[in-house]
């Protein structure tokens, strides 16, 4: 089993997410995260999909996705040539006596405090997933009350854009 990151440009229409997640469920693809967002082009959304699988599953997922009319472009993110980011919000128990320790950790990780209450605080951090994992591990002993991770999103470095790729439907 390996982890693959796939990025796709899809139609920004209702039902597209269902079409894609339905395909994953139907074909038994094991998805770790799926992150959908708007793009510079309002007709398109961008999806970043993290897949756990092997080369065969990766090939099938890519080709099956590519057959969907609403999927316009699709590419496998290359680890060395891409920027990966994820955002984490975490609400931690922070009574006055522990707060300074948390602030110290926050500074090490370049996280931000975005909310403060007498007993809690919310931290925000962005980075590659393993940085977030490390941060969570350090914060955990203080008592995580709840947290939200956006899932991975990625862009390739340099001038290369997903939109420039050839679509499967243009090939046949």
């Amino acid at each position: 089993m390996k982890r693959y990151t796939i990025t796709a440009l899809v139609s920004n229409k209702s039902g597209v997410l269902t079409r894609i997640s339905g395909l994953f469920a139907r074909r038994g693809f094991n998805i770790e995260s799926l992150c959908a967002c708007t793009t510079e082009n309002e007709a398109l959304s961008r999806m970043t999909i993290v897949l756990n699988g092997d080369e065969y599953i990766l090939a099938q997922l890519t080709k099956q996705l590519d057959k969907l009319i609403d999927v316009k472009k699709i590419a496998l993110a290359n680890e060395d040539e891409s920027i990966y980011r994820e955002l984490l919000l975490v609400k931690v128990s922070a009574p006055a006596q522990k707060r300074s320790q948390l602030i110290e950790i926050k500074d090490v990780y370049k996280a931000k405090i975005v909310d403060l209450s007498p007993e809690t605080l919310i931290l925000e951090i962005t980075g590659e997933p393993n940085k977030l994992d490390g941060f969570i591990k350090v914060i955990e002993p203080y008592g995580i009350l709840e947290m939200a991770r956006t899932g991975l999103t990625a862009l390739s470095r340099g001038e290369k854009c997903l939109n420039d790729l050839t679509d499967y439907n243009e090939l046949i």
Partner: peptide, 11 residues
């Protein structure tokens, strides 16, 4: 019906 036929239509 669009939801129902999603897996059995091209589109």
């Amino acid at each position: 019906i669009a939801g129902i036929t999603m897996p059995i239509t091209k589109h």
